Amino acid sequence: MSEQSQQQLGFDTLAIHAGNGADPRTGAVVPPIYQVSTYKQDGVGGLRGGYEYSRSANPTRTALEENLAALEAGRRGLAFASGLAAEDALLRTVCKPGDHVLLPGDAYGGTFRLVSKVVAGWGVEWDAVDMADLDAVRASIRPNTRVLWVETPSNPLLGIADIAALASVARESGALLVVDNTFASPYLQQPLVLGADVVVHSTTKYMGGHSDVVGGGLVAADPELGERLAFHQNAMGAVAGPFDSWLVLRGIKTLGVRMDRHCANAERIAHYLAEHPRVTAVHYPGLPEHPGHEVAVKQMRAFGGMVSFRVAGGEEAAVAVCDRAKLFTLGESLGGVESLIEHPGRMTHASAAGSPLEVPADLVRLSVGIESVDDLLADLTQALG
């Protein structure tokens, strides 16, 4: 499918068909799982279809990478073994010792750990800033700033950053704008269209959608940067395996219809929590009182399936709510069809404890699934007590 023909198709059509042509050998409408390590060459250096070894390229992974690029309107997609593997490859590609990375003030704990404990160890500097405050972002940029790293919505406080405005700031300073689009998915938001340089995904989450695969992805707007990322993907080797690639491809086919239900359920729950006497704050960009609501309306199709809230009574009360939930499964991760509940301070964001990115101790995070929303509301009612 050519780039020109893709531009004429709707999102759900692309999700099903991009990279997913019928198998030329059998006519199978689902791409095969090429569970293979090496490929027969037609003479020394004579490659069939460009495949020689599955770390370098694999047909099932190629199908996923083409699909990711199409959905994000990018020039090059790359699939990795996890979201953090994708982030690591990106940072090692675009940063060198002495460079500076600007993180959001409430970044995902794994991203914070990677930058502050690993990447910083080989000489890359970092700071955290509220990405919704453009003046603060400009004031935090240094001459050596190489990357503006953005999550929108952010994890776990659901902060919203103006991607188009930050793209202008990044261009002014000569930095790359990297957007972690995991919470939104390309169905709700396309950062490259808004001016970002690279999109990051944990495909474990909404892209896979069924809590049965771990994976990551990068999509680059610039083909030259895409080639550099591909070189590092091969050189470092943390690639998505064939079966994992196939599982993500399968999940993406229903991404649009799943996200519609995730968003509808989350909006009902956010409004319910906003009226609950034991809830002191609700973080959901679909609420008119959310400070990023107007920006979210501008750049998102809908507001996502993630909700976080703070509980009266402090940390122990928040932990108790997590323990009492029944339909909401206590667990890390997000984006599956089943609803999850967690205490970020003790779970996904424990690595940020004692840092500028530490999350409130009374915070509870929900990944709202696609169950019947009345059942989810009843579970929250009993969990809140």
Score class of each variant (00 low, 15 high):
residue 8 Q to R: 15
residue 14 L to I: 05
residue 22 A to N: 15
residue 22 A to K: 13
residue 32 P to K: 00
residue 36 V to W: 11
residue 37 S to Q: 14
residue 42 D to N: 14
residue 52 E to S: 13
residue 55 R to D: 10
residue 60 T to Y: 06
residue 61 R to W: 06
residue 61 R to E: 01
residue 67 N to E: 12
residue 85 A to H: 06
residue 86 A to K: 00
residue 87 E to L: 13
residue 92 R to D: 10
residue 98 G to V: 08
residue 108 Y to S: 07
residue 120 A to M: 07
residue 136 A to H: 08
residue 139 A to T: 11
residue 140 S to C: 07
residue 147 V to K: 03
residue 151 E to A: 02
residue 155 N to H: 13
residue 158 L to S: 08
residue 160 I to V: 15
residue 171 R to P: 08
residue 176 L to D: 01
residue 192 L to M: 04
residue 198 V to P: 04
residue 199 V to R: 04
residue 199 V to S: 13
residue 201 H to G: 00
residue 201 H to K: 04
residue 214 V to S: 12
residue 227 E to Y: 03
residue 230 A to D: 14
residue 238 A to N: 11
residue 243 F to L: 14
residue 245 S to L: 09
residue 252 I to P: 00
residue 254 T to Q: 11
residue 254 T to Y: 05
residue 255 L to G: 03
residue 259 M to A: 06
residue 260 D to T: 14
residue 261 R to C: 08
residue 266 A to H: 07
residue 275 E to W: 01
residue 277 P to Q: 11
residue 284 Y to W: 12
residue 284 Y to T: 03
residue 316 E to S: 15
residue 316 E to K: 15
residue 317 A to N: 10
residue 318 A to L: 02
residue 324 R to I: 06
residue 329 T to V: 13
residue 336 G to L: 00
residue 340 L to T: 00
residue 343 H to K: 09
residue 345 G to C: 05
residue 345 G to I: 00
residue 347 M to Q: 13
residue 353 A to M: 10
residue 354 G to W: 09
residue 358 E to L: 03
residue 359 V to S: 01
residue 361 A to I: 01
residue 366 L to M: 07
residue 369 G to K: 05
residue 370 I to R: 02
residue 384 L to A: 08
